[in-house]
């Protein structure tokens, strides 16, 4: 029996700023993990990743990352994705320092 599919989000780095971004349900890129589309179907995950990977003028290195539902939207599963979603732990830099969308 195959392993059950784990929900995922599509994530990448923005081309100019290098910032971590997530693919939203309407196909835009958000800097906030909670605004990502939580993909629960493997075929859709593959299709969304292919769409993301084709956007070479906007993002770099798109990939699928495991996520889980949370009260305000998808949340990271692995600690690496948690750090990407927040910023470094030694300074209040990165997303944790920012409150507004761009």
């Amino acid at each position: 029996m195959s392993r059950p599919f784990t929900p995922q989000v599509v994530t990448a780095n923005a081309l100019v700023a290098g910032d971590v971004v997530y693919l939203t349900p309407d196909g835009h890129w958000s800097r906030h993990h909670a605004e990502a589309e939580l993909i629960e179907d493997p075929d859709r995950a593959a299709a969304r990743l292919a769409e993301a990977a084709a956007q070479t003028g906007t993002v770099v290195g798109a990939y699928l990352a495991e996520a889980r539902p949370g009260p305000a939207g998808p949340m990271p599963v692995h600690f690496r994705e948690l750090f990407r979603a927040q910023g470094p732990s030694n300074y209040p830099h990165g997303k944790q320092a920012e409150t507004r969308d761009v």
Binding site: N13, L15, V16, A17, G18, D19, V20, T56, G57, V60, G61, R80, F83, R84, G87, P88, H93, G94, K95
Partner: peptide, 28 residues
């Protein structure tokens, strides 16, 4: 040329690395 789409990331990556530019976890 990368920003105007003339170069893909695959083409650009070795060029930026030759000049010390990495793409890391949160930023370049």
């Amino acid at each position: 040329r990368r920003l105007d789409g003339s170069l893909t990331e695959e083409e650009f990556k070795p060029l930026r690395l030759m000049n010390g530019l990495y793409l890391q976890l949160h930023a370049y």
